[in-house]
Design a binder for these strands. Structure first.
Lengths: 238, 238
DNA sequence: TTAATAGTGTCTGTCAGACACTATGTG
DNA sequence: CACATAGTGTCTGACAGACACTATTAA
């Protein structure tokens, strides 16, 4: 066993959702020093007595601090150094989670109070956040870069959508994340070949003065499946 | 501060090189229980008194256990659970490193004894390894998958090459990693546009009965730069 | 019929795969 | 010259970008 003082181990989660079309992250208010009262990413110690692994810790923390269950959740990166926390050498196993906005604060209740939720949580546009305690800004930036990067070649953003959504809505989300307009034809071609969504039964629907759109939902099988990166070098066909 | 027993924190490194064209990894012999005498990935505790961060710990461990300095080194993934080590809840911040074979056991000495090196280190082809203590096989597989995946769209394998190499040699490495023949023309087009290598001054050269090849070296600026993933969705030109 | 959004047909330039060709060294 | 490997020219099919067109609803 080690004779050195061991680092402190925490799990921090970048919880992302879309609020009014803007990519936003959950911040929670710290109760204890250091940085008591300040807003940080939801995080906490690993509970070695109840968490099976780091992912389980992330799930527990999301539930406890943000009141949210089981969205898309993936390990991001581990931040570990002597300087990131003034209590000493510390390790943060960082995760990022994507959440349909409708699930913020449980079910459709969010439709009524879309921004504020529990007393100690708030949502902020990721590009409006200029500083955070510890190295949480770096963690946030890393997560956002990852999401935007994966948007380029995967269907990751479907996990930000409500249970049923139209292709036009999905395209607007992509355009928001990528920062520019996309061609409708090309967008639909690509989404289709990613094969991650399927038509959903038409709902009674709001009556609007134009052609109603087909609704889609994430395929069950694909729900947690990450598309692999594209091959750019193909071995010759035999 | 946490009232729970804290996890044990280690750093493990998957050190990869090419031996006779085969992707191989370094294994070191454990001195202490558990698994004393068995071969595992080089790893060790984080030394909170001397390591600035996890990367520094990886560098130190590589030097101490494998006698190797400063190859390409990148964080892979963190493996953290109650079950991976029977001493209790443990965290492994895993790194992977790429090493030109000529640097194994320092300089060109490796040319003479290419396989065996120090008493407590050995090299094995990654596909020949069927089991390892702890979850080291999973860590190894994850690293190999990552390298092979990045080979598809980046110039990562140049870090496995000696200081100067020809495009034909590089292509053979790619073919080895990807498991099939590549078209010469397409391969050279792609490497060129990655813009990561530059012509090296011709060496006196071995006299062979055919046209000699241009030698290349990794560009200084690009030495540690990872190419970004390709964009497959382009925002419309304004 | 108009307005508005959903959804499709299709042209075209680009580019990767394929492969044949030329280049340059030694014996 | 032959031979072997290095390196390039170039054809072609596939496909992504672009954009115009049709479809479908309510007012």
């Amino acid at each position: 066993m080690p004779s050195y003082p061991q680092p402190i181990v925490t799990v921090d989660v970048v919880l992302l959702t879309l609020i009014d079309g803007e990519l936003s992250t959950a911040l929670v208010q710290r109760e204890h020093a250091p940085h008591a009262g300040e807003w940080t990413l939801p995080g906490g110690w690993v509970h070695t007595d109840e968490d099976e692994d780091a992912l389980a810790a992330a799930v527990r923390i999301l539930k406890a601090k943000a009141g949210v269950t089981s969205p898309y959740l993936e390990q991001l990166q581990t931040f570990a150094s002597r300087h990131r926390d003034n209590r000493g050498w510390s390790v943060s196993i960082a995760y990022y989670a994507l959440l349909p906005h409708e699930l913020v604060e449980g079910r459709a209740a969010a439709q009524v109070t879309p921004i504020a939720t529990t007393p100690h949580i708030k949502w902020r546009g990721v590009d409006d956040i200029r500083s955070l305690p510890f190295d949480h800004l770096e963690i946030l930036r890393t997560a956002v870069d990852r999401v935007r990067s994966k948007t380029l070649y995967s269907a990751l953003p479907v996990h930000l959508m409500p249970q049923a959504f139209t292709l036009s809505e999905l395209q607007r989300v992509y355009e928001q994340l990528l920062g520019g307009p996309l061609d409708k034809r090309g967008f639909r071609r690509r989404i289709e070949e990613l094969d991650i969504i399927e038509p959903a039964p038409r709902e009674p629907g709001t009556r609007e003065a134009h052609r109603p759109a087909q609704h889609y939902r994430v395929k069950r099988r694909a729900a947690r499946l990450l598309p692999t990166a594209p091959r750019n070098l193909d071995v010759k066909s035999a």
